[in-house]
């Protein structure tokens, strides 16, 4: 048990790295997609809608394989500058996870934005704020506060989803777990140890989100 514990914790940095990089990239892209979804321009709206639909309608595992193996098939991609990124399983995994969290969180952010009442924005423009300024300092903080609980769930889903990068040779917690299981045939023990590590990470995230929620809602705390 101890032995497998020390082997498995070596996977934590990679798991966290994958989760953190793709969550940050995905978050900023998600704001963009959410804005496209609520824009009145038909083509922006449609593009965002179909993007979200396609990502949410297909399994992440398939997306990872499509990006890592599917795109690598073409010689023009292998010759292009994209190859620096696409030949590396790490970056392919990051791309897939980023697109994934982008699609899910864009819906969460959209819900948050649409929950902000118009009056606040009108107040902003009455004070002479421009559209970008009032978006940044009025809309975004309120939308984030509204969207935070759902976004916390998304973070937990991301930690779980990061386990799939083990299928493209990245040895994070689940990858190591699978390797030890096939060597030792002790699936229950490894499941308990690896599972506890994931539960601990997710517990910390839940706590962090709760703390952020309290901080952002001083009037309720």
């Amino acid at each position: 048990m101890y032995e497998s514990f020390f082997k498995l914790i070596k996977g934590i940095p990679l798991t966290l790295e994958v989760v953190i990089i793709s969550t940050i990239l995905g978050f900023f892209l998600a704001i963009l997609v959410a804005l496209m979804r609520i824009s009145k321009k038909g083509y922006l709206n449609k593009t965002a809608y179909y993007f979200v639909y396609a990502v949410r309608g297909t399994p992440l595992l398939l997306q990872i394989f499509f990006i890592y193996y599917g795109l690598a098939q073409f010689s023009f991609i292998q010759d292009s500058f994209l190859w620096i990124v696409l030949k590396d399983p790490f970056w392919c995994a990051i791309i897939a996870l980023t697109l994934n969290t982008c699609a899910y969180s864009s819906e969460i952010i959209r819900g948050g934005i649409q929950s902000v009442s118009k009056g606040y924005l009108e107040a902003g423009s009455a004070l002479g704020m421009g559209r970008i300024l009032s978006f940044r300092i009025i809309m975004l903080p309120l939308a984030i506060r509204q969207a935070l609980p759902a976004y916390g769930n998304e973070l937990i889903l991301m930690v779980k989803a990061s386990s799939l990068v083990s299928t493209v040779t990245l040895m994070e917690i689940t990858g190591i777990a699978r390797k030890i299981i096939s060597q030792t045939f002790a699936p229950i023990e490894i499941f308990l140890v690896a599972g506890s590590i994931y539960l601990l990470i997710n517990f910390l995230i839940t706590r962090g989100i709760k703390a952020a929620e309290n901080k952002l809602t001083p009037d309720l705390a």
Binding site: K160, L164, P187, F191, A194, G195
Partner: peptide, 13 residues
């Protein structure tokens, strides 16, 4: 709270 893949490995093996 645990990745699906881990649950599948548990039952598969």
């Amino acid at each position: 709270g645990v990745p699906e893949l881990l649950v599948i490995y548990l039952l598969f093996f």
